[in-house]
Structures are given as C-alpha cells and as structure tokens.
Nucleic acid binder design. Sequence first.
DNA 1: GTGAAAGCGCTAACAG
DNA 2: CTGTTAGCGCTTTCAC
Lengths: 347, 347
Amino acid sequence: MITLKDVAETIGCDVSTVSRVLNGKPNRVSEANRNRIHEVARQLGYIANRTASSLASGSTHTVGVLVSNVFDGVYAEYIEKLDLAFSEAGYSLRPFICHNRPDKEALALDALLHHEVDAMISMHYSRECEDVYVRIKQHSGKLIFRSVARIPEISFDHVLIDLEEGYRELSLHLARQGCRRIAVVGGSVASLLTLGGKSDSVQFFKDGIRAGGLAEDSSGGIVCADEQESAYQAVKKLYGKQKSPPFDGLIVQSINKVVGVCRALQNCGFAIPSDVKVATFSDLPLCRLFPVPLTVWAQPVQEICSALVETTLRRLKSPEMPPTVFKFKSSLIVRESSGKDIMEKKK
Amino acid sequence: MITLKDVAETIGCDVSTVSRVLNGKPNRVSEANRNRIHEVARQLGYIANRTASSLASGSTHTVGVLVSNVFDGVYAEYIEKLDLAFSEAGYSLRPFICHNRPDKEALALDALLHHEVDAMISMHYSRECEDVYVRIKQHSGKLIFRSVARIPEISFDHVLIDLEEGYRELSLHLARQGCRRIAVVGGSVASLLTLGGKSDSVQFFKDGIRAGGLAEDSSGGIVCADEQESAYQAVKKLYGKQKSPPFDGLIVQSINKVVGVCRALQNCGFAIPSDVKVATFSDLPLCRLFPVPLTVWAQPVQEICSALVETTLRRLKSPEMPPTVFKFKSSLIVRESSGKDIMEKKK
DNA sequence: GTGAAAGCGCTAACAG
DNA sequence: CTGTTAGCGCTTTCAC
C-alpha cells in the first residue's frame, strides 16, 4: 500500500507538505513542489486512507440516516434526496435500516456514538431506545429528528411534519365526500382506535370525523403490519363476504399498505371510489400513476430534505447552539381515489 | 471524550489489558481485573472509537453495496436482505447510490479504494468507470459483482442472474399466449432494438420471438428512462389515439416502469391482458398485489443474497483465492397480466 | 514555503 | 495473566 510517506520519500520532502498539497490546503506551497507532488502521487498510485484521516482530523465527513426500511417509497425518496444534497455539501450519506427492531435501531445509533458518522438523522424513534438517545444527548448531541412530534424528553434539533393534522384533514375530506364510516389502516393510530388509547393523531382524526358531521362511533381502525401483504390480509378479512363495505372511507398510513388495501377491495368486489374512498400520506409518483390515482396529504419532501441538510450542517459547525425546530406544512391533493370526479360534478 | 487510556488509568493497568477485555479477546485475563474493567468502563461511559480501531486493525467490518437507486423495489429488497445477512455475520452493510451517474459510481467505488469499506458488492456496472474497476483489481480485488454477465475485462467474483434468458422465456411465453407484436420497454434492450445494435439479451429476445413463431419484424423497443413517469409518457405517446395497440405484448424491464406502462395503457383505453399482455422481471410483493397480477421472470433473491454474502466473506478471508462465479436460475411465474385465465381455459 | 514532532485512539506482537 | 513497545496513516501546530 502506497502511503503519504512513500510519496514524500520518493520526492525527498516531508509528509506534511504532501498532505497539504494533496488536500488542497489554502496558501503557501511552491508551484514547483505542488506539481511534482501531484505527479508522483499519481505515478505511484497513491490512494488516501480515509480511516487514517478521519482519526487524525476527527471527522468522517459522513452523516447517517436511520430509517425503518427502505422498501417504502417514502424512505427511498428521502434517502435519494438527502444523498444528493449531502454530496453537494461534501458529505456522504450512510443509510441505516432498523427493520422496526429496537436492537437494530440501537446498533445504528451506536454508529454516532462510536464516531463512525459525524451526525445522524433519525426518521424512526422508538421508546425502547430512549436510553441510547439520552446517551447521545450527553456525548454528542449531533442528532437531528425528522418526526411528527418533538421528542419532549430530550432536546434535539427537529424537523417536523404535520402528519397529525393530516388525519384531521383526510377524515374531514372523506366525510365531506360522503363517507359515513371511516377507518384508519395501519400504524399506531389504527391500533389505538381498535384497542383504545389516545394520541394526538387519534385526537386529530376524531376532530376531523366530528367536523365532518359524523358520530365518533362511525370510525375505527384496521390493524396491520407495515407491509403490502399484511394490509391485504387485514382488509380482505374484514371486507370479504360482506354485502356492503364495513367502512366506506379508508385513511391508509403508508403507500405500501395502499397497494394491499386496493387489491383486497378489488378482490372483495368493491370499487374505488364508488364503494370505498381511499386516501393516504406522501405524494409519491406512484400515487399519480396508480390505476385509481390517490388522494394524499402531501409533504414538501424537497424542502424538508433541505431543512434537514441545513440543520445538520449547522449543528456540525456549532455544536453548542440551542436546538432548532422547523415545522412544515403539508397540503391536501384530491384525486380519483376519494372521488375527485364527484367533487367536480358538484361544482 | 473517554478513551481506553482513561479507563486504564483510573484502574491502574495498561490500555492493552483494557482493550483485550473490552473486545472479549479469547483467553487469559483474570476474573478480578475483567470485572473491574467492565465496571469502570461502564461508570466512565466509555465508548470505543471505531475509526481508531479500524485504523489499528486494518478492518472496518463494513461492506458496501453499490446500486443505481433505492427507489426500485428490487434494489430495496436486495439492500434489506443483505443488511440482515451481513449483520448476522458481524458486518454492517453500507449502501451507495449512484443515481445512474458515472461520477457517483466512481465516488462510491472510491470508498473501497480509500478503505472506508472492507469489500464492495456492485450491482451497477458502467463502462465509463472501467478505469476505476481496473484500479480496484490492482489495489484490492475485494469487489463482488451481482450482474447479468461476467465483466470479461477484469476478473472479479461474480454472482450472475439469468436476465438474458428471461428475455427469451418472456417473449416466447407472450407469443404462445397469442401476442402478435411484442416490444421491450426500457433498458438497453429497448434502445438496441430501436436504434439497432446487438447484445446477448437482444439475441435471446429474438430467439424467443422466433421460437414463438413470430417474424422478427413483429418486435420492437420502447425507449424510456428508469422512472415510472418516463415509461408512462413513452407508452402513452405510442398508444394514444390508436384504434388497436401497436404492440399486444410488452416485456417491461423493471417494476417502476410497469406502473407507468399500466397506467398509460389504461389511459389509452386498452385492457390488460385482453388487449395487451404484460410481463416483467423480479417477483416483488407488488407483482402479486397489482390490480392485474404480473407475470414475471422471478429470481431467487434470498439465495442470491446468501451467495453474495458467502462470496464476500470468503474473499475477505482469502484475498488471493481465484475469482468464483455463481449463476442462478430464475423461473417463469405466469399471472393474469399475460392471460393466465386464458391459459387455464385452454387446458 | 517546508520540515519536525506530536499526536488521533486503538491493536497486536512480544516479553516477561 | 499483564505491561511494554511499536505502530496504523494522516493532520496539524509550531518553528525555522
């Protein structure tokens, strides 16, 4: 392996000079040496050892991003956009996938503690790992949340999205479109609605239900895991062999589940939007190109990513700065899945 | 920051002893010291600096995987499966996304050269980066290809999938299902069929066409970029305002494009499979749950991932071993999109 | 402008 | 069983 030392020795100068030149450090290196160094480095096939520079300089120039999976188009989109944005800023993005498992989540967060990355963006928070987050706060603080609500226990930078409000807007919208019974498919909201329990999202959902003129007991949850197949099974089980649909409005928590939901409805002989109206979160390309284009509560993903990158870079520069909080506004995009045509005819 | 040295000093022993204990090195450390070291390390909140261990030990315990994007479910699936498999083997997977850009591809490969990862799995090869691959061969050799054909110029480990044969099997299948004019949507095959030019895949495709009893000029290509939207536009442009479909059989190169293709056909008033039959590669969950379940040339992804992990670990262990080549067999799964019902009625 | 020197934090012989 | 001794390859002050 060719090292800085090798280059320095064949030239007869010091490693520090070579280092300066090869890293394009500001001023002061003679033209002559500069050229010679570049030339020799190339000839010898010198390749810097980044592990060594990271150790010496104390920075890896890498930012981690923690996601639950990468199969969901939403995360894929964030990762691709963040990757591009960070590489423009001279950093590289390193995705960590936790598969919804706290052990993997902790392992990913360890990368920050162990100095494998300079900072970490977390798009997945589970209570089980709270102690790790506390440790991070003590040791580094270079963690940025992209989440729905502020993690109150510890103070980190936050980039917030208004998914909670989405539950209100979507349930209200569906009610206005004529739905009489509205359910949430998947996620914690579905669980809480089914098993009982409260959360801000549930509250927002119920607000929408009421504002839409429906009784609270006209709503419910359909519990399923975070996969296309689970959603399919759950909906099929509930709707199979029914003459009329148990719920005529569905708010589906993620795009993967929409796929399962739509297929299940189709299998059970129910049409979208005439029998059942469907809406979801995140405006992926798939939402427009779906056989029945989907009504969505759409986040400004590009802006969110920019905010994440900015926040991260700022935090890296000024570690002691007090935590910042951004909150982004989503918007309702109405398409055929919730009866766009009906709406337009009314007008 | 608490270092090994701090732990050693508060105990009054040497850093090497602490290192041994904390890394669970085989034999020989007294029970007494062992416990004391663990305790003090915990109390002080010691966290190992992995950059430093990587430098000292010469290994990062990280394997990179280079993909063109992560939005395509196929890559997402590989990444998730590889991630799981590698973490069981004590390695962590680091995805690199090149967005089909040679500059980003080279940058990702640099990570291997610069010792940021111990090995790299490449699922994306572009000729433009050939020089980088040559460099890698000289300097490291720890590159494993998951590809369709062997990269002949340089000898690396290969895990091959039979996508080429897929073009033959799918075109033959569509012909047998009654298609008279068959086209390939997207990818290099579509380009070569349109602009002229040869490749093994094109040859296989034409073999299938002939074997299916069709004339060679009854086939064609529909060129588009690797996105849902591009495929949509390309097909819409070709099929719009036509009374009968220009091609009644479509082999679509990736799942994202299928989404665009199906939507375009629907928009143009053509039904699947009665007017146009569709088939694609890779059996993702989406293929079964699609409104019209998709006929696919299905790869054994789990086995492929196992082979990739095994190959990588073996290469890491024995760098001098001659390159190995695995080839996996796919299988045809017939579903409604190519007229499964029709087939069954015939029987 | 350039070199000398002191680390970054950890690992891994080797010697006792 | 444990300490000593060298590094790993690079960065970065500080003199000259």
